[in-house]
């Protein structure tokens, strides 16, 4: 255990000396890596926030079950119970004919027309909010309720749900591709740096081999080197994101106020930061090992 710790400490020091030995080159590399990781990170972060805003700002697609005039109390209760038991339905509400009429009377265009009616022609309706507003769920529920007694008509926002989903998938694909591209470029850059370091130390590797150093002993400094580069880039990216948020948040608040909606940009929590550092360090270490292995193969 003592030897193992000694070797790790020694490898860590060597990795530090790789970086300190070429300070300018590594400062530029870390800045570049930081930008790439920041781009990947902000792409993911802003996509999440925009998705959140879209879901909470745009009208939610719903499914409306219009009841027949003849629907009796028992049918209404049975339908209520089955809606309450359906796991695909997040929430539902019943709008009675009187509530529907009152709502229409508030509309300045329709109010004069409604005054001449001798009776309320509007049906009662159940408005369903789905747990997962996936277009296929709308189809499924439409079919499930279409033959139900007491239901005259079903109006579905399936098309609206399809449009939302298509736009969301498209945006997710483009942003996901960008995030992957930036992450991959960071990976390649670290692998390249490690490759260069290994080439500079080829003589040392044959020497270490001669002295009985295991391949793990020779690889370890490179793993730490990549991990240090990755973690530095992750830290820089994190700082960049927080800085960008500090700059943008007042603007989004102002924009939200104009549209009378809340456009919050809460900063990611410290746990997300820890995960970012961990993944950057692990990815960097792995990239450096690949880069170093490749130089040995050459």
């Amino acid at each position: 255990m003592r030897i193992w710790l000694h070797h790790h400490a020694s490898a860590f020091r060597q990795a530090g000396s790789f970086i300190l030995g070429q300070p300018l080159r590594h400062t530029v590399s870390i800045l570049l890596l930081g930008m790439l990781v920041a781009l990947a990170l902000s792409t993911g972060f802003f996509w999440q926030r925009i998705n959140h805003w879209v879901q909470h700002t745009l009208p939610e697609p719903t499914l409306t079950l219009f009841m027949t005039d003849q629907a009796n109390e028992a049918q209404m209760h049975a339908l209520w119970d089955s809606l309450a038991a359906n796991p695909q339905i997040r929430a539902f509400e019943y709008i009675s004919p009187a509530q529907a009429l009152a709502s229409l009377r508030n509309s300045p265009d329709l109010a004069p027309a409604l005054k001449v009616l001798d009776r309320n022609p509007l049906p009662g309706a159940f408005v369903l909010h789905l747990r997962d507003p996936n277009p296929s769920r709308f189809n499924q529920l439409e079919q499930e309720f279409s033959h139900r007694e007491g239901i005259a008509q079903i109006r579905s926002d399936r098309l609206w749900a399809e449009r939302l989903e298509t736009v969301s998938t498209l945006a997710e694909s483009i942003l996901g591709f960008c995030a992957l591209l930036f992450a991959f470029l960071s990976f390649l850059l670290i692998a390249y740096q490690a490759h260069q370091q290994a080439l500079r130390r080829q003589g040392l590797h044959s020497l270490l081999n001669l002295l009985g150093a295991s391949s793990a002993y020779q690889r370890r400094p490179f793993a730490y080197y990549g991990a240090l580069l990755g973690a530095s880039a992750g830290l820089l990216a994190w700082a960049t994101l927080l800085w960008a948020l500090a700059l943008i948040t007042p603007l989004t608040h102002a924009l939200g106020a104009l549209f009378q909606i809340t456009l919050d940009l809460p900063p990611p929590d410290i746990r997300d930061g820890g995960m970012l550092l961990l993944f950057s360090a692990l990815g960097g270490g792995f990239a450096a090992l690949l880069g170093q292995g490749n130089s040995r193969a050459n």
């Binding site: 081999n209 001669l210 002295l211 009985g212 150093a213 295991s214 391949s215 793990a216 002993y217």
Partner: peptide
């Protein structure tokens, strides 16, 4: 390889 390296030590 690791054991062989150890012998070389």
């Amino acid at each position: 390889a690791t054991a062989r390296s150890r012998l070389r030590q």
